[in-house]
Design a protein around this nucleic acid. Structure first.
Lengths: 256, 256
DNA sequence: CGAGGGATTGAGATTCATCAATCTATGTGG
DNA sequence: CCACATAGATTGATGAATCTCAATCCCTCG
């Protein structure tokens, strides 16, 4: 088993207490009775911070830890021999990464930070004990997994059956609603957007050149615009319609 | 909540006992101690049989049941308003269908039988009790979900980043290995294959016409052949290589 | 102020979809 | 048992969507 990555820097002091966690409503520990919350605090190995564009996991490698994201964005992806990359998911605060059934198995995806980030680490070897001792967290983990499954299936539908402009509309609309829900700022029509056009291409199965042309179309249609790492939404209803994104289902993703 | 579908015909007698289940090693109840197995027997509402091409679930509709597949093949899919369909998964004996985090929510996919099938039904309203009372089955359900997640992510990679011939090679190779592992017939180079070319297209994001031409290419390359509902593999190694399918990972899918 | 990565645009090639016609296998009713 | 109906498979011709290669531009950062 490999150790922790060198780019992950332990936060020496000022670690957030789980009971004070500002994003608890989103996270693994949502709805957990206070008296059981001690498990997370006790078993959280450490909080780590890391810079943007640092690798957290690499496919086929082993890792001792799973993480919950406290701050920042990450991309979860798989690569092919020919260098092509498929981004499976943009992971946001509250998301769990590195959880899989067999905690001793190698990672089946890679992960990289898209922004500066703070991660809460849990030792994978503690997980079996968790399943034995804490039903609430186990159930919650299952719920988060199930939500992820639904997201993944929707992406499969989008990537398999949509055109380029529909794919990008869907991708951006989903991300927009996820971010808005997490940060509770329903009034703003824009979000910080740290992905390059190449990243968008890797997430939607398009080349960066075609992404560029398609973003231009979206701009000219007055639906949305990306510039200087910001996504501005001009017509969210049309955007959702174009991308077949049902915003009412966002609450099946972000579980309160 | 909707009731059971009229096409699902209750098996009146000769229901298989869970303790005698021939596919238990694959299924939800793998590795469950005998004394806990009574839960499944007690809570299994019924075994149902159904003919090929019958709908089991419809997206957005409610269902009272989740199922484990005892016999037959099913397709799990989502559809768009324009009629396009994405097959998310081919479900085989041992697979669980209809499990999602919020058991009261509407189904987020449809399901149809591809062959005659036999399903074991469990009432969704019993699930919360299951989580409270049976850690083994809960854990097993989590493992199966996690395996499905990995399969789904691999499909996302394939559909997003591969060419038509690579997609179909991957799809067929995966299915071939899954079927071989379930039925334990490692010597045969062919399997029963009830999917039409249109089904393959819906699973890989291609039109049936392009599937036809691509199958012709695979035939001419001497890799595989589909005829009269049979998939014959001529060169499994080359097929896996072409489709970037790593057959060694099949054991992370089919958990013994 | 120069370097470098990302964004943008153009031209041409390729893959895949669409439309349309024919062929084949399978099942059904007479 | 045959004639027919039907669904799926096959092939051709054409066009659209997307990729590839190449050049230039722009912004950011040291």
């Amino acid at each position: 088993m490999a150790d922790i990555k060198p780019d992950l820097i332990p936060i020496q002091n000022k670690q957030t207490a789980c009971s004070d966690c500002s994003i608890r409503r989103l996270a693994l520990f949502h709805g957990i009775p206070e008296n059981e919350l001690s498990w997370t605090q006790k078993n959280r190995s450490c909080q780590y911070k890391l810079a943007a564009r640092k690798e957290v996991y690499r496919e086929t490698h082993h890792s001792d830890f799973m993480f919950t994201i406290y701050h920042g964005w990450l991309a979860i992806y798989k690569t092919l021999e020919n260098g092509k990359r498929q981004i499976l998911k943009i992971a946001l605060p509250g998301d769990v990464i590195g959880y899989q059934a067999n905690m001793e198995a190698a990672m089946n995806y890679s992960a990289i930070s898209l922004t500066d980030a703070i991660l809460c680490a849990f030792s994978r070897s503690d997980m079996p004990e968790l399943f034995r001792t804490n039903k609430h967290i186990t159930k919650r983990l299952t719920e988060l997994n199930s939500r992820d499954m639904n997201l993944c299936q929707n992406r499969l539908l989008t990537i398999g059956q949509h055109t380029a402009i529909e794919k990008i509309a869907h991708f951006c609309a989903e991300l927009f609603y996820r971010v808005k829900t997490i940060y509770n700022e329903p009034e703003d029509d824009h979000i910080n957007f740290p992905l390059s056009q190449e990243d968008i291409g890797d997430a939607t199965g398009l080349t960066k050149i075609h992404v560029n042309r398609t973003l231009k179309q979206l701009r000219e249609k007055g639906l949305m615009e990306i510039s200087s790492r910001t996504l501005k939404i001009h017509d969210i209803d049309e955007l959702c319609k174009l991308g077949s994104f049902d915003k009412s289902t966002i609450h099946t993703y972000i579980l309160y």
